[in-house]
Design a protein around this nucleic acid. Structure first.
Lengths: 100, 100
DNA sequence: TTACATATGTAAGTAGTTTACCTATGGTGG
DNA sequence: CCACCATAGGTAAACTACTTACATATGTAA
């Protein structure tokens, strides 16, 4: 799992969101470091949907504009937590080590 | 930076190593999770050499077998530490959060 | 009326993997 | 003796996820 995917799942763990809201929340969560392009986002959402980590929970129209809401599935939450644990451990291996 | 690259740099930070020794050390550092294939390793070493994160420090022949030793450059150490900090922060964002 | 925020998407290209293949020596088990 | 594994180094093709560029449309502020 790469960073864009990780933060997409992290944003959806807080609450279901539509695409544009995910982009904004990912920017916040990452300290403005990860600026998701729409190409990255929608392709990732398709893929995560096929993998069962994310699902569409609602389609609505607000002010003539469509909004599709996505939510994290239980498998998605498991994958996200596993990835967070993996990264924490990988970081620890380097940060605790004394340099040569 | 992806996980194989990260652990290659982490292995070289401890001491200069030749390719095969990197593969073994990466397995240890990652808790046997990352099993580097040679294709991943040597292509990554080429790339990291071009980027100035790693350099060849010695070629030797042991028992009729060539060994090429690689070392982390100062830029390589900077990149590794930055990546470790990035991962620690990304993990923290998820692990400290209360699920929805 | 121009520009930016909101909102969703597709297509083509790129990067870094993975998978599969190849050579070669030395030691161990059957 | 032969098979297999550890050691040691490498290439080529395929795959995946990402980036970049393009396309469309409405609402609001300057």
């Amino acid at each position: 799992m790469r960073e864009p995917t990780y933060f997409i799942l992290a944003a959806l763990r807080e609450e279901p969101r539509h695409g544009y809201a995910i982009i904004k929340r990912v920017a916040e969560l990452s300290g403005e470091r990860v600026a998701l392009a729409t190409g990255t986002l929608y392709q990732a959402l398709d893929r995560l949907g096929r993998e069962g980590l994310v699902e569409v929970v609602r389609d609505e129209v607000v002010n003539g504009r469509a909004r599709r809401h996505y939510a994290l599935t239980p498998d998605g939450e498991d994958a996200l937590l596993a990835e967070a644990a993996r990264m924490a451990e990988a970081a620890r291996v380097v940060l605790r080590a004394r340099p040569a």
